[in-house]
Design a protein around this nucleic acid. Structure first.
Lengths: 274, 274
DNA sequence: CGATCAGTTGAAGGGTCTCAACGCGAGTGG
DNA sequence: CCACTCGCGTTGAGACCCTTCAACTGATCG
């Protein structure tokens, strides 16, 4: 609802929307306080934060934030929009490592190395706060609250990475997709949006790469889950119609899949009502 | 790439072994300085660190450090030994998420949540520094160097988690194993040990869980790699005898596997000479 | 309207999972 | 000392799921 302002109204050229009049955090003259507020810091910390400018950057859908191997100049905090982070193999194959949304950190894995080990592109029009790495430590001393926020964000990123393992751990493709959808659902809920109905910001290929399966398999898995009447899928619109069943199914390991599918649906029917 | 004779370039904790202090770090009365030294902080920072005790804990092989779901009391820094971190499914299946060695952080993903999302057990006799979470922020203010170290360790943990994605991304089991061995090799090198010859601290089952394949497949993959004359395997002793071939093979994505295997070895011969 | 891409579905082949058996070493107690 | 058990590691055979190649639809775009 809040991000229905997507403004996908084309305008290929026109003035680059880097400068926006800005009320509060929307302007380019955002400060640490805005960043702290985004990350859910205490009001007191936000109000008492030192007035240090933190550049904000706007990206259009498909625009890259940083490239693989690029010097790590900043870490980023997503203010709005969605990003996919991935790695490109030598033969051009894209391995998607995760999807990052509001109030999450981007590029933190570059802090300990010379360059970004991954690449990030916006899946929709997005805005991020950029925190220069060289200032990271200094700012953290100036504003203890910022240090806390960075620690929490890093821990959160680590937890998020754990979700990938959780997804890849499932042997069956349908289970992987189910877990993925549940993770998405949880994150939607944590952003105050509906956990039952949401729009996928990424393509089937991105999902496939993230799940570690072929994109055709993702399609088939979607129709399978729809066949079990757990979800309803219309292109990128997803609605979870049986959360408990989806949850139970996502817990399947190994050949428990057979039981689950048999008990729910001997053969996937075409539940394709619009 | 690793032509650096001096220290292990590219590694965040490069100059760990250059400076060996007395047995100060070995006592139970270790302080922040010992922790900083372990993590490769600057000499100046180590010497000027506030004298705050940091409890050290010894664990025997097989002993658990923290359980899944347990209250996150501390984060840990591995001083010696190896740990495996994993998650246990409801049906008892263990999903291994990673293996953690010297100068790496353990349990940081619990900072942002109420409890540890994972479990950690020692694979061999090990020692860790325990840094209470509630003191984390306070100490970071007292000792800026500690804040830096924690940031670096967290970033490193994130990078390490990325390795799991790298491994799982490969479709072929042999490629997964090859990448896993290379990651291990790199980490051995960063600890000052031989990157060509090392001992696996974990069982085949642990490796299988980490790679996301059946443990029988791990066995077959080991014999396959030995058949291509890339490695020599004797139980848990591994020797990489053709690093370049292993590297090239590990880059395989999709059906490039066929080419690689054909060019190296039409059919795996029994190269099992001791 | 032709081109390109995302998404879906079908058919065939192959890699991995599963079940099964075997050898081996360690720990145990007769 | 040796039989016994148990877990680890290896190897074999069949079933099955996924990958791959292929064709088709619909949408976007110049």
């Amino acid at each position: 609802m809040n991000n229905s302002i997507q403004s996908h109204s084309g305008q290929p050229l026109g003035n680059v929307a880097l400068f926006v009049p800005a009320h509060g955090a929307c302007g380019e003259r955002s400060t640490i306080a805005d960043l702290l507020h985004l990350m859910g810091a205490d009001d007191l910390d936000v109000r008492t934060a030192p007035v240090i400018p933190v550049p904000m950057r706007r990206l259009h859908a498909g625009e890259g934030l940083f490239r693989e191997g690029a010097r790590a100049e900043s870490i980023y905090f997503v203010r709005s929009g969605t990003f996919k982070i991935f790695r490109t193999a030598e033969d051009g194959y894209e391995q998607v490592l995760g999807f990052v949304g509001r109030a999450e950190v981007l590029g933190f894995d570059a802090v300990c190395s010379n360059g970004h080990p991954t690449e990030a592109v916006a899946l929709e029009d997005s805005t991020v706060f950029a925190l220069p790495v060289r200032d990271l430590f200094g700012f953290a001393e100036t504003s203890p609250a910022l240090g806390r926020v960075v620690h929490l964000a890093a821990s959160n990123a680590l937890t998020r990475q754990g979700e990938l393992a959780d997804v890849m751990a499932a042997v069956a493709a349908e289970v992987r997709l189910a877990r993925f959808l549940l993770h998405l659902s949880q994150r939607m809920a944590s952003c105050g949006q509906s956990p039952r109905r949401f729009v996928l910001r990424m393509s089937r290929r991105d999902i496939a790469s993230y799940l570690g399966v072929a994109h055709e398999t993702v399609s088939r898995s979607f129709t399978a889950l729809a066949g079990w009447l757990m979800v309803k899928v219309d292109n990128r619109d997803v609605e979870i119609i049986d959360m408990t069943a989806l949850r139970a199914f996502s817990r399947s390991t190994r050949r428990q899949l057979d039981e689950a599918s048999r008990s729910c649906m001997p053969h996937p029917v075409a539940a394709r009502a619009a």
